[in-house]
Amino acid sequence: MTTTTLVKTETIHYDQDEVKKVLETLDESQLFEVNQLVFYPYYFFECQLERKSLLQPKGGGKAGCAVDGVNKVGSLVDQSPVFLEKELPASDMIPVTYDWEEAKKAAIDFVRHSITYRMKVLAPPKMTITRAELFYRPYWIAEGQSVPPDRYTLTVDAVSGKYHPL
C-alpha cells in the first residue's frame, strides 16, 4: 500500500499530453513518454522590506524568495504563489535535506545578496519574514524513446513549463 502525506503543492498547468506534444514539436525525431511525476521541495519566504532612504522603493515593498529544499539555492519569486493542500505519495516526494532555520538564513542571505548586486547598494533595506511555507512543486520526467546515444531524458516543471536535461 502506498503511503501518502498531506502537503502543500501547486496546481499543474502543463499536463502530460501537453508536455509530450510540445517536446515532440521541438524535436520531431523523438517520441516522448511522460508518465512519472516527482514532487520537489521548496521553502517559500515572503520578506517585508523596510524603506531606509528616499532612493528605495516607496513603501518598502515585499520580496518573495523560494529556497530549494535539497541544494539550498535561492531564487526570487515574482508573485506570491498560491498553494493547495493535497495528499501525495511519499515515494514521489524528494526529501528535504535541512531544516527551517537554515532555510530562513539562506533566504535572507539570498535576498540581501540579490539586492546588493542588482540594486548596487551596499546596505539593503531591513527585512522581516512575514510568511513561511514548505511546498512541493510537481516536475514531469519526459523520457525520449530513441535508441542511445540519441536518447535523452528531460525534467519539465509542470507549473511553468521550463525544462532541463537529466
Partner: peptide
Amino acid sequence: LPKNIDKNVARDLAPEASSI
C-alpha cells in the same frame, strides 16, 4: 541535445535537475 531543445533549456533548473 537537438538544437531546438537545447536553446530553450532553463539553465536555472540545473540544481533541481541534478537532484531529480
